[in-house]
Write a protein that binds this DNA or RNA. Structure first.
Length: 238
DNA sequence: AACCAGGACGTGA
DNA sequence: TCACGTCATGGT
């Protein structure tokens, strides 16, 4: 029993170390990217007061839906298209004709689903008014699962909710900090137990894990078919 | 030219 | 509960 306790302490320490090293290596990431920020492709490191307007907050919702199972570059294009269409607000999105919106978001794939989901969050966002959503409410909306809900809470509202994505799982598995098929909430709790309850840390850590995974956890050449992971330099350090 | 992307959801076992 | 198929375009 005491053995288990000690190993848990070590794991917590590794998580904290991982954050320190990633931050030191890559710097502040400045998520969530916003079109109102013209420089640095919308990223705004250190400006933790963002987003602040309804336009910026709603853009996080839109991006969170559109980025599901696709890369951000295609989402960037889609949001830009929506802006040119003048459909980048819940009110406008609802009244804009379906084919125009679908055409705008086509690059992100799954456009039929995503169109429906954009409508759903638009309706919800309007009903919300000035109120802040709860996780439970968000999860009740079509197309919003755990990761999307937590992304919205963390990046649109600055709630200290850790976002667990596929990359996070992959990295932690590789470092043997979790077992395979560890559950979402379980991984989330591990982070909550290991790092200070500070939304800024949560935002940066998640973004840093994504950055790290993009560098070392994606297959690079068709040759390395069997090897998903190249080599993670962090394995030596933590 | 496969293989994968900042997932979610429905279904059948 | 859980493993698996589906949704679809674009980047590497």
């Amino acid at each position: 029993m005491i053995y288990k306790f000690l190993s848990f302490i070590l794991i917590m320490n590794s998580i904290q170390n991982m954050y320190n090293i990633l931050l030191e290596s890559y710097g502040k990431q400045g998520w969530w990217p916003l079109t109102s920020i013209t420089e640095n492709k919308g990223y705004h490191p250190g400006r933790y007061y963002l987003p602040r307007t309804h336009g910026e907050i709603f853009e996080v919702y839109i991006g969170a839906i559109l980025t599901q199972a696709t890369n951000w570059k295609t989402v960037e294009k889609a949001i830009k298209n929506l802006k040119e269409l003048d459909a980048l607000s819940p009110e406008k999105l609802i009244i804009t004709d379906r084919t125009s919106v679908i055409d705008a978001i086509k690059s992100t794939g799954y456009y039929n689903q995503k169109y429906k989901r954009l409508l759903a969050i638009s309706e919800y966002y309007l009903k919300l008014g000035e109120r802040k959503p709860t996780r439970h409410e968000l999860l009740g909306i079509d197309g919003i699962g755990k990761e999307t809900a937590d992304s919205i809470l963390l990046y649109a509202y600055r709630d200290p909710v850790f976002v667990v994505d596929a990359y996070t799982i992959r990295i932690l598995e590789n470092h043997k900090l979790i077992k395979k098929k560890e559950k979402y909430e379980s991984v989330q709790k591990l982070f909550s137990d290991s790092i200070p309850r500070d939304f800024k840390v949560y935002q940066e850590f998640h973004a840093l894990l994504v950055e790290h995974a993009k560098r070392y956890y994606i297959k690079t050449t068709p040759k390395e078919k069997k090897k998903k992971i190249i080599f993670d330099p962090l394995l030596m350090e933590i």
